[in-house]
Design a protein around this nucleic acid. Sequence first.
DNA 1: AGACCCCTGGAC
DNA 2: GTCCAGGGGTCT
Length: 291
Amino acid sequence: MPELPEVETVARTLAPLIAGRSIVKVCLLNPKTLQGPLALEALQGLRIDAAQPTSRRGKLLFVHGSHAPNTEGAEAPQSAQAIQGFAVHLKMTGRLFVHPAGTPLHAHTRAQLLLDDGSQLFFDDARKFGYLRVLNPQSLQDWAFLQKLGPEPLEINPHDFAALFAGKKGKIKALLLDQSIIAGCGNIYADEALFRAGIAPQTPAHHLHSAQLLRLHAVLQAVLRESIAACGSSIRDYRTANGDVGAFQNAFAVYNRAGQDCIQCGAALQKIQVGGRSTVYCPACQPCVFL
DNA sequence: AGACCCCTGGAC
DNA sequence: GTCCAGGGGTCT
């Protein structure tokens, strides 16, 4: 599901539901849903930040919190004080919901966090690809995926964005999906941005002119912003933390539209494989000028 | 760069 | 049945 706009939407919709709450109890229903060196139980007693409960980095969602400092006579373990919260990767089918007390587990609930107002944070994930990771300074430092993440596409300037791809031989679509080059772009928004930029997805990056890369920067930012404004794209599984669907799937120009007419020129949209991923583009509007 | 792998469910 | 899916890791 979730690419940058969807994760951003979940972070935003989740924040008011958990701000200032304490985690009373945790329940891990699928052991593989927890990644990293720290036990989920380390979150018990954690107070989620009131001011900034959630944030996003690439496709990762962060929930920030801290344990109350040790007072004289209190016996919170020293290690607990270093816990900073947890991260969630939703992968393809992950969902985060907050339900009232007593709500039974769903068929695909993989982890459950009980909060001090009786509400429960559910992590549901049909395919079990997603994960939670409890964070402290060590856990953050040892997290290769996080440490290797490239810059945020909505924060990088056009010049630096172009420099990420200049001289690279890989296909531009595959590079856009590489989280170590640019963080947060997935299959939907790579295809949509390349269509808007008029660039064939299989073009080797070093064949792109500077003007094309600057154009790609502008349209990628535009499509991400438009999707965030629409609360993301719900193809199958994605929901906001409130259980709502997004609306940006109604604005797709190419994704999920193979064989249909190009909205710009009317030609039939074509489906190919690029970097092992299904890719839809318009052969007329996105010509392979390098061939 | 490409081929699998991790899983489950829905479409055909 | 077979193929497909918003992701990412690990092999050759």
